[in-house]
Computed example of a mutant assay.
Amino acid sequence: MDAIPYLNIILRLTIWFLLTADLSVANIIIGISIAFLLPRHFASPEPLREWMRVLWEIIIAIPQAYLEAIQIMLRPHDEEEIVRERVKPKRTPGLIFLDIFLITFTPKTIVLKYEEQGWYKVHRVRRKISDQ
């Protein structure tokens, strides 16, 4: 059997536990119920390799997020820009969600909007490059 449905359930449960911050038995039962009752999108399933690649990128983003937070605290980041980033081709809604999560997870970037034409509108902060 394919592992993708299990990954979708795990993703839904993870989001539920992050939102509720409660690991009581009642909350676990509610979370499992919601994970199974939410409608599923029956598009072509993502290859397991794509899921693993995105999950690896999220693991790599954790130390990057701490580093960016320290950089923001130590040096001012007073320039802002809004850029458009292309969505990777053939992304399913689950992978698009993980891409948005990955971009927004780090302190210097946040996705403002997902455009159906295949773009993310991303807000970034950066250090001002001084003229020397």
Rank of each mutant, 00 (worst) to 15 (best):
F36A: 10
A35M: 14
S24F: 08
L23F: 10
L48M: 07
L37R: 14
A43P: 00
I29Y: 12
I34C: 08
V25K: 13
W56S: 03
P47F: 04
P47I: 02
H41P: 08
E46N: 09
P39S: 05
I30G: 05
R53F: 10
L38S: 03
L48K: 06
I29Q: 15
R53Y: 10
A26T: 10
I58L: 07
E46Q: 04
L48D: 06
S44M: 11
P45M: 02
I29F: 12
E46T: 06
E46C: 02
I30K: 14
A26Q: 08
R53T: 02
E57F: 06
I32S: 08
M52K: 15
S33M: 03
P47R: 03
I32N: 05
A35T: 14
P39Q: 06
I58S: 01
G31V: 01
A43G: 13
I34R: 10
P47W: 04
I59R: 03
L38E: 07
I29N: 05
I34F: 09
S44A: 13
A26P: 01
F42Q: 15
F36G: 04
H41Y: 14
I30D: 12
R53V: 08
L37Q: 14
S24D: 06
L23C: 03
E57P: 00
I59W: 03
L55P: 00
S33N: 12
W56K: 02
A35D: 14
D22Y: 11
L38F: 11
E50T: 05
R53H: 07
